[in-house]
Nucleic acid binder design. Structure first.
Lengths: 223, 223, 223, 223
DNA sequence: GATGAATGAGACTTCATTCAT
DNA sequence: CATGAATGAAGTCTCATTCAT
């Protein structure tokens, strides 16, 4: 399994990260600060969010943040590592033999993970250029590579099994699908009043069947 | 036609905008500067791009930019207005009676427009929070509203005509589709080596038919 | 008493102002900075004084000023509000029944206040156009209006009581007198070696009696 | 006559100035530009007025101003020299033997001159610190010195003749009076609806007689 | 742990001035 | 004479970060 190989890499780099930070005990207070920061980063972007805003949200002075974190960057780091660890765990768990089932597993597990890490995902999308460029965030690229590999594997297996259209460009489809899957997360919470499940279901139907009305409904008893 | 009505509104607000800027004549030089700025904004984000970088790209000093523009913001403004005018023109031209044809028109025209304004679209997605908040950029919200209305109109008409699945949530589908349609533009040019047409075709097939292999392949020799 | 009524208005707007500034506690250090800034503003004008000069005078970097104040403007604000509060307090205290006594009280109290706030007054005169135009400084106009009302009230009462010439244009006289009263403050300290009292006395004699030699010259038929 | 002596100095430095400027012929166009600039300088202050604003007022581009003038400073120079030449001419013409008559002549001639050069006077008051500091504007200090000398001469002569109070501090009185005399000019035109003559008359009465009602009104029928 | 003051680098912007066309 | 483009110095302000108390 390719994910196994990559699996060693990513958490490793993550752990290396964490040790950089002063305290290893999430310590409740610290976790709260990370959460606050995440919300702000998601809302306004990483660069556009100032440490003072984070500190204000926490009711302390900006300088005091540095008792908890080395730098603003390390807060972002902590948020993103936590997120990607969860995502990868989900992907690795989606190991059904049937490619369609596997993909459905991925979609459903992602949906849950993404909801939990809404802010982190938004950060990732929004500030990918910022983070992706720095060596410190190499683990981001590693994680994305594992995710890509997982999708492509399932799509190709589906094609070979005659389940998916033979002319699917697996890589292109992956890009399209992953981005679509990640997209609703960035929609402002409850923007359209859609629950997570609604979106996922709509997405899955769209994905497997398209928007067309069923072709010859009289004969086929649906799907 | 609702688009006609809205059509008057949006360019009006647009023209009001433009008059704010010092010169109305694009003047070649100015257009070049706007283009350079757009590329940088798309690459690094609006806020993360400094006026010095823009000026450097143009081979002038940063202060000299202000001979051409009021502010960094007004450069962004110019880029976005130019883009949205084009987009809306495309949407308004997509007026086929058949909803499927209309949507296909939108997708195809969008594809061309988006290619031409790749940078602008990326800016819009990436820095929507930044721009959308300011009163100055109210026209952005107006334009997005017209776009939404157009999609929903076509989707609903398709549903009524029995062309599209009756259980489609038009608004949700619109969000999903529009974002998907706009997404590949932000992929770094030629990232996967996909040409524009390839992406559009893949997108349209996915859209209308899903990823499933055709239901009764034995009978139809199609595809 | 009209001054009473207005009395509520002006300090109110003042307090509203102050809350805008980061800290409400003058904090010693902050007060010192305000003082330094005031001296410079008086000497060179508000606009002509750079924040760097203020910072230099305080022995810190210019950016560090922004730890204490929102903006250069808010320093000016603080100086002017402090000044006007004092001035108005003096005017409100000058409530003798005899109009001549009241005016003398005003002149004498002003003299003391103006000495204490020499820099602020100079700013007010010199940069009135700058400040007066901005909505933020509306309280300036309020304060000036109260001052005018006070003078005019006393002058009119003096006219009715037959103490002042019946043909005095109260408003014009007020303008002339107030400006004269405020003028010496802007003279460079000790420019002519005149003490404050000297100037005030000269002013009061001029005011009440003019420059003519005493009338009772019955003998001389002149004039 | 002291004014004669100084008289040589001031216009000399003035002429030296003028030759600096490119064209000697006022040329109509140039005079217009100077006028426009003066109005703006008076309204907003010399420093606060940008050359672009002047150019805008004239309907040309800012760079084009430099075909007419060396620099912004030289425009200010031209305005001030023109003004002071006129003022001094007026002072020199006020040579009545009677000190009171002489002072009245000064006040009346000044009033006319000041009205004609309202903008210049406002500049002088407002931006004295700016100009007074530069060597280039040494003639300003010369002119002011002549003006002071003239007043003091008349005041002292009036004291010796028993016309003015013996305890007048001539220098202090001069400062007070000159500033008062110059003050109304800076009042926004027609601010109180006062005509020039009104102000001058009010001023003269105040000056000679003070604000007190005439001592023995019953007896004297006078005014 | 937190505060308050400060740093230092760098951001956006302004403006008088120059100059080729 | 005027334009349009550019310069370069300076100005206000922002912000991550440090550190003594």
């Amino acid at each position: 399994m390719p994910s196994k190989r990559l699996g060693n890499t990513v958490p490793a780099s993550h752990n290396a990260r964490v040790s950089t930070t002063r305290s290893t005990l999430p310590s409740e207070r610290r976790a709260h600060l990370v959460h606050l920061a995440g919300e702000l980063f998601a809302e306004k972007g990483f660069r556009a969010t100032t440490v003072r805003e984070i500190a204000d949200a926490a009711g302390i002075l900006s300088g005091s943040l540095y008792h908890h974190f080395d730098s603003k960057e390390s807060i972002g780091d902590e948020i993103l590592t936590g997120f990607l660890d969860d995502v990868l765990a989900g992907y690795r768990g989606a190991d059904a033999d049937d490619p369609r089932a596997a993909i459905e597993q991925i979609v459903r597990t992602s949906s849950a993970t993404l909801t939990r890490h809404r802010a982190a995902l938004t950060m990732l999308q929004r500030d990918w250029n910022h983070f992706g460029a720095q060596p410190r965030f190499a683990y981001l690229r590693d994680a994305m590579r594992e995710i890509e590999k997982t999708w492509i594997t399932h799509l190709e297996r589906g094609k070979k099994a005659g389940l998916f259209r033979a002319d699917l460009d697996a890589k292109l489809t992956y890009r399209l699908l992953r981005d679509v899957l990640w997209m609703p997360t960035s929609w402002r919470q409850g923007e359209g009043g859609w629950g997570t499940d609604e979106v996922v279901d709509a997405f899955l139907r769209l994905l497997f069947e398209g928007i067309n009305a069923p072709k010859r409904r009289r004969i086929t008893s649906k799907n």
